[in-house]
Nucleic acid binder design. Sequence first.
DNA 1: CACCTTTGTGTAACCGGTTACAGATAATTT
DNA 2: AAATTATCTGTAACCGGTTACACAAAGGTG
Lengths: 329, 329
Amino acid sequence: MATIRDVAEQAGVSVATVSRVLNDNGYVGAETRKRVMAAIEGLNYSPNEVARSLYKRESRLIGLLLPDITNPFFPQLARGIEDEVHRAGFRLLLGNSDEEASKELEYIQTFLQNQVVGIMSATNNTDSENYTNLDLPVVFLDRVSKQHPSVYADGIEGGRLAARTLVERGSKRITLIKGPGHIQPAMDRFQGALAVLSEAEVDFSVLSTSSYAFDDARTWAEELFAKYPDTDGVIASNDIVAIAILHEALRLGRRIPDDLQLIGYDDIPFSSLSYPSLSTIRQPAYEMGKEAAKLLIRMIQKEKEVEQTIQLPVTLIERNTTRKVDPNA
Amino acid sequence: MATIRDVAEQAGVSVATVSRVLNDNGYVGAETRKRVMAAIEGLNYSPNEVARSLYKRESRLIGLLLPDITNPFFPQLARGIEDEVHRAGFRLLLGNSDEEASKELEYIQTFLQNQVVGIMSATNNTDSENYTNLDLPVVFLDRVSKQHPSVYADGIEGGRLAARTLVERGSKRITLIKGPGHIQPAMDRFQGALAVLSEAEVDFSVLSTSSYAFDDARTWAEELFAKYPDTDGVIASNDIVAIAILHEALRLGRRIPDDLQLIGYDDIPFSSLSYPSLSTIRQPAYEMGKEAAKLLIRMIQKEKEVEQTIQLPVTLIERNTTRKVDPNA
DNA sequence: CACCTTTGTGTAACCGGTTACAGATAATTT
DNA sequence: AAATTATCTGTAACCGGTTACACAAAGGTG
């Protein structure tokens, strides 16, 4: 690998001049610039980011911490982030926390050690000292916090919307699936739905689940029909669980949406491909990623007046696991 | 941020001694070590990776280049990689290439600029000079190459297996979906299936598709039934496409697997949750990631006798979009 | 006891960029 | 024409680690 000194020698100038050409700052004569360019070309030189980072005390890397890239909500989010961050010339350091505090800490540590310019994190401990003491830009994903800006979709409203949808469409014995208690957005949507159900004239039960994992989803589905065989409406904790329930319901011969209505949460790509296609509450994951990245980049560029939070809309995506509302009602 | 000099001063020793304590090499007196440890603790010191990388001429980062993290095959793969790489103390720099040569080059460039210790890539240009001229460990994912070690599952065999399965179970008018021509594994599985169908006593047609994207999958599905309405067996290019076809088939009232058999490819997590659950050819994505990471790490550690390729088995996962074989046959 | 080896520690060069500062020349202003 | 300002370039310090080398003291050997 050629270094800046090789280039300087080749072009017959000092390293400072090469650096000026590279960064396009300071004065450089037209003729000199040409010679330097030629030397760069000739040596196929490309500057060492590590050296630059050391002096600048910051790299062009951004740390991205997700619970688990294997959960289909996150690839969308990550992709939105990556597209935006890439455009701005940054690169991503990726970590999976598995919602474990130790892994989270470890990653934040290595992010710092690598002098990232900013951190994006979907964590449940937004107020942990892992983040409060950081003096670099942080954006929380899909979570809210007082400490740092956040990009999220309103889970409480989403939960309400899900519940209202089932109620309006006539489900009378609703089962509400409560997601993992330590995941903040899971609780939000649960609370939102719970509030609506409490005030509606319906019977309902709550089924408590402890994970979003694919392998467990089938278990929750079986448990659901074992415990509440006569339920006629299910508000799932997310689309994975919803689709597992849909699967189980069809296996048991339930007619959807006639016997049983079902609504998911997230609108992951697969939800439109299930059959019947899944009605769900959409969180715009890709856009959330994009917005979060844009926000972080603005912070990195030290712009004034950066929003503290960006709330994206949750929307009802009516597909075919819910009935159509009576247009005369 | 405290530096090694702060620690040295605090402990009343030289930076060399602190470095020796940190890296546990060279001689350090027991008493001195204790003082240094205390200073590290007291200052909450954590070494700057960037400075270390600069001197060592390599970081502890590994570059991972994937076509698109949004394709459900890759998160599994990425997770396998991440778990293994993390255990060994490395971190991941992630990039999406979108199968575009320019993005690919750009990422490889920045990987090098950041002095990664190794690169893992799922590319279609394994023999491009992007890779041939690299003098650092490279492992190809899901692809084969002469230049560098690869971890892959045998696509040709997988394609054969898929085709044999449909033929054996009695489909007579098979539609074979050909995936994007520029994606090597897509071609492999296509060729494998094609070979089997050519020799079998069945009619078959080929439907050519140009992407794996979710949004397009529905289009292929519609096209399929428009062009070949009387097909009774579909070999899909991957599970996304298979599930889209399943959706469309059910929408059109086809009985599965009685009227139409369907087999996918990959065994992504959702394939077991479709209804009927999808029969498919499994590629062990997570394990592939793990193996690839282990291989790369061995190369990084300059072990002798590192395998050049690791081939993982493709297996038939018989679920409910294919009929059971007649046990008397 | 002279000699060699092991142990313990510090000094300073080095990795490859960036930039403060200084000095020289050219262009502009008054 | 003198003073001022703009343009161009180089020297060397700096970022924060690692390590070659030097040196001193302690321990072991014949």
